[in-house]
Amino acid sequence: MAELLRITGLKSQVEDKEILKGLDLVVNKGEVHVIMGPNGAGKSTLANVIMGSPKYEVTEGTILFENEDITEDAVNERAKKGIFLSFQAPQEIPGITVENFLRTAKAQITEKPVKAIQFKKELTEKMKELDIDRSYAQRYLNMGYSGGEKKKNEILQMRILNPKLAILDETDSGLDVDAVKIVSKGVIDFKSEDNAIVIITHHNNILDYLNPDVVHVMVDGKIVDTGDISLANEINKNGYVKYREAKGEAEWKKEIKLI
């Protein structure tokens, strides 16, 4: 498989507090990766740093995307290259409809005009697949949406923008069983040999429907364990006990911000 993303020795901080502490990660095209870990491990920070959020300062290391160094690239430049981030807590944007937002975003990313009739047809098809009422296309982005509706709308954005790398941060959080099934199907339908997916999750909800190629455990700003779906099942059964025991109770509590 062709390599899509390579992160080497990545360190990042927020307001002089180091969160990522020398993280390494390789993602190939056609793969689904899952990143699990306790609260405070740095999972969402990693997602935002890959996307290029200016809130997070990279102090060391590199991010290569399709063998190109994007460590210093702005968010919009990374989006044009094919990176997408589904937010843990999607923002409400008054005054901008879902349809206008997605059509404008697609035009910006592809740098080509988006024909209205063709786009409406594509949007309608994708909304139907995700069980989203067509009327939501004319509603302001995430305004008055339930948590589940916001998460489904994030998957809709992914399907329309069709990135090379999709990073899904807690997409299954707060969803009921039916919504998890729909979101999972949206992810499965998106997956291909030409793209890759990184799923950040606390739960096994979405993993009941997906078969990830690689599962990573992240603790204290680093990936400390890697395996297959059996690793996720072990964590679901036993939690992070073995990592806590390896670190020692006092040090573990510091790392997950309990003291």
Results as ranks from 00 to 15, higher is better:
residue 1 M to S: 15
residue 2 A to N: 12
residue 9 G to C: 09
residue 16 D to F: 04
residue 17 K to M: 09
residue 19 I to E: 02
residue 24 D to N: 14
residue 26 V to K: 08
residue 30 G to N: 08
residue 35 I to T: 14
residue 35 I to S: 07
residue 37 G to L: 07
residue 42 G to N: 06
residue 44 S to T: 07
residue 50 I to R: 05
residue 50 I to L: 00
residue 57 E to M: 08
residue 60 E to A: 10
residue 64 L to W: 14
residue 65 F to T: 08
residue 70 I to N: 04
residue 72 E to P: 04
residue 72 E to C: 08
residue 79 A to M: 10
residue 85 L to G: 12
residue 86 S to Q: 12
residue 89 A to Q: 03
residue 90 P to N: 09
residue 91 Q to T: 11
residue 93 I to W: 13
residue 94 P to A: 11
residue 96 I to D: 05
residue 99 E to G: 02
residue 99 E to F: 04
residue 104 T to G: 07
residue 104 T to D: 15
residue 109 I to T: 05
residue 110 T to E: 01
residue 116 A to P: 02
residue 121 K to R: 06
residue 122 E to Q: 06
residue 126 K to Y: 02
residue 134 R to M: 06
residue 137 A to E: 01
residue 138 Q to A: 04
residue 138 Q to W: 07
residue 141 L to E: 10
residue 143 M to C: 08
residue 148 G to L: 07
residue 149 E to F: 10
residue 152 K to E: 02
residue 152 K to L: 14
residue 157 Q to P: 00
residue 158 M to Y: 03
residue 165 L to G: 14
residue 167 I to K: 08
residue 168 L to F: 14
residue 169 D to H: 05
residue 171 T to A: 15
residue 173 S to L: 02
residue 175 L to R: 04
residue 177 V to G: 00
residue 179 A to V: 01
residue 179 A to D: 02
residue 182 I to L: 14
residue 188 I to D: 00
residue 189 D to V: 00
residue 190 F to W: 02
residue 191 K to C: 00
residue 195 N to G: 13
residue 200 I to E: 01
residue 201 T to D: 04
residue 202 H to N: 01
residue 208 D to R: 00
residue 210 L to P: 09
residue 210 L to Y: 10
residue 216 H to A: 11
residue 222 K to F: 01
residue 222 K to V: 12
residue 225 D to K: 15
residue 226 T to Q: 12
residue 227 G to F: 09
residue 230 S to V: 13
residue 231 L to R: 11
residue 236 N to T: 09
residue 238 N to D: 13
residue 241 V to F: 02
residue 242 K to P: 08
residue 243 Y to F: 14
residue 244 R to Y: 05
residue 250 A to K: 14
residue 251 E to Y: 12
residue 252 W to C: 01
residue 253 K to Q: 14
residue 256 I to V: 15
residue 256 I to E: 13
residue 257 K to S: 08
residue 257 K to H: 10
